[in-house]
Design a protein around this nucleic acid. Structure first.
Lengths: 342, 342
DNA sequence: TTGTAGGCGTTATCAA
DNA sequence: TTGATAACGCCTACAA
């Protein structure tokens, strides 16, 4: 355990100088700097975590966390409750996390929330940057201000970020394909559907991943409704029911985004004793119940708890310990849930 | 953020006294103690994590970690490599983790290793206490010595422990049952097999969980070989191949413990183009490959990384922060792996 | 450009 | 039985 004190002694300078060198601060003689840096290198200096944590308390760090709290974005509830828990821990470390709840998804309303976010002087920001003009604008301003941000659930290359924590949607689609194939013994006609999401990036990527995987691995499976435009049409609930009725031979249905989940029971009612397998995404409360009842066959999770806690930890590590995230994207685990492992 | 300093001022005593009270040390006037405790309570004192971490460095805490490093216990390799990583982190916090590798599983050899463990003066111990007489003895001595222990992978009630981190084997069997049923559309004859483990508790519990779940949920599935004595017989590799040949109608095979995994390819060779589904446990390197090749249909994991890292963290929290584990048993997640989510 | 010193919260040691 | 003080490692304001 090498400390700045030891480096200071070795270099014949004061601790302050070593600190300046190590943290790339202004005003050190280049020769001194070089000497100190070499010694630090040679001795294998690693800053002490507790030391940094202790010293960080004086900084009164404030992190902002934007969540959506609407009936159509239920997934964020699970993210939020995990994040709240983590925020309490952070409070113990002298870091405060402020939550901003967006209760609607229309641009004007969101603009108001984002304005509020910018007013508070934050040291870091966590958000799911939807692909909407308000967010594009906002991301640019945040980037300019230099506030480090972590994106969760939705990635967005219109602004720079420390890291992304969320699902790899394409892979998620692939896993759904594998599960679907598994549940119908690799053959038969299947359907794809989604209730919400008019071609949101996440749904679209899942669709692409699903289709590609089926084509690659399962020559004996045919997808009844191939066309993306057809899948993402309006008033989808009715369209899905129609699809199921038109195709009694359908063996499985992949529901990308089930909305409020009421679609599942409706579909099963129409497909009565047809032994239709339903594969979907996420594990919200409703889905848990429907899995138990045997209405949903399997679902693929995206770790809402990790999406809530890891971004906070990453910002803490960055702001307090000065360490960059290991990866540019942290993908959540593609956990498969069936009746028995809820 | 209340500190002992604040409590000391409020109570009109020194920080030392507050420290004595809070940490239940000897030599405090009962009146003083009561007063200090009340103030701490009223102010909602929570010890500071960084403060404790910093102060802990002087204690030179040493944790022992026992792992098995034998050809038949490959799972422990993954535990070990995660634990090694975690040990490095701990080193940064001034805590050293010493590993003890047991290269054989016979009692005499193990006795030697355990003796070595006892010689070193450890502040905490992590081990998988196999159900063998050497361990029974050892656990009793450890318990008497008061050294806190965390068990992983194998629980054992012959000694007291802080917590257990590992698989819920019975639930693991249930999940295997659900997966098996899913892969054969809930009907048909299936088989159960295991290569290693003459009725080790983990295998036995998995078997029980599997059988019970099939009976409860799948009236149309019949288990060809019901009898535990038959499943756990000697020279199992041959017995399994025989089973597969005798029952060409078999739709799926649950392999509880595949040993070195060579059984899988052998079974598939015998069952050529029979479309036999194979369900198993763990995700070692071999299994990963076989899943990719489509020889194994699905497997159920038990988070070797968590088993390696969490016990270390728990002992750290206990020894440094003085916090007890949340639960008596921490079960690893019953993650399902198929070809697409390796 | 560099050094000094105090503080972050807890704990151990020594002195009273 | 209690108090005072010096660590633990880092950071920063101020002084030189």
């Amino acid at each position: 355990m090498v400390t700045i004190r030891q480096i200071a002694e070795e270099a014949g300078v004061s601790r302050g100088t070593v600190d300046r060198v190590i943290n790339y601060r202004q005003g050190v003689n280049p020769d001194t700097e070089k000497r100190v840096r070499e010694i630090a290198e040679r001795l294998g200096y690693k800053p002490s975590v507790p030391g940094k944590m202790l010293a960080a308390k004086k900084k009164k760090i404030k992190i902002g966390f934007l969540v959506f709290d609407t009936p159509v974005a239920l997934f964020f509830r699970d993210v939020y409750s995990a994040a709240k828990q983590k925020a309490l821990e952070m409070d113990n470390l002298g870091i405060s996390v402020k939550f901003y709840k967006a209760k609607q998804l229309d641009e004007q309303y969101l603009a108001g929330v984002l304005e509020q976010v910018e007013k508070d002087h934050l040291d870091g920001l966590i958000l799911a940057p939807l692909h909407l003009p308000v967010f594009s604008e906002f991301l640019k301003r945040i980037e300019k201000s230099g506030i480090p941000a972590v994106f969760y659930n939705v990635d967005n290359d219109e602004g720079s970020r420390l890291s992304y924590v969320g699902c790899d949607y394409k892979e998620s689609g692939r896993v759904a394909a594998g599960l679907t194939a598994l549940s119908i013994n690799n053959k038969g006609p299947i359907g794809i559907a989604t209730v919400l999401d008019e071609k949101s990036p996440s749904s679209y990527e899942r669709l692409m991943g699903f289709r590609k995987e089926i084509k690659k691995e399962n020559p004996d499976i045919t997808i009844i409704n191939e066309d993306a435009d057809y899948i993402f049409q309006e008033n989808n609930c009715d369209a899905i029911l129609e699809l199921v009725e038109k195709h009694p031979e359908m063996k499985a249905l992949y529901v990308i985004n089930p909305g409020d989940c009421s679609i599942f029971e409706k579909v099963m009612a129409r497909a009565a004793n047809k032994d239709l397998k339903i594969i979907t995404n996420d594990l919200l409360q409703k889905q848990r119940q429907l899995l138990k009842k045997g209405i949903i066959t399997a679902t693929i999770g995206q770790q809402p708890d990790v999406q809530g806690t890891l971004p906070i930890q990453m910002l803490y590590d960055y702001l307090v310990l000065g360490s960059m995230p290991q990866k540019d994207k942290i993908y959540t685990s593609l956990q498969i849930y069936i009746k028995q492992n809820l």
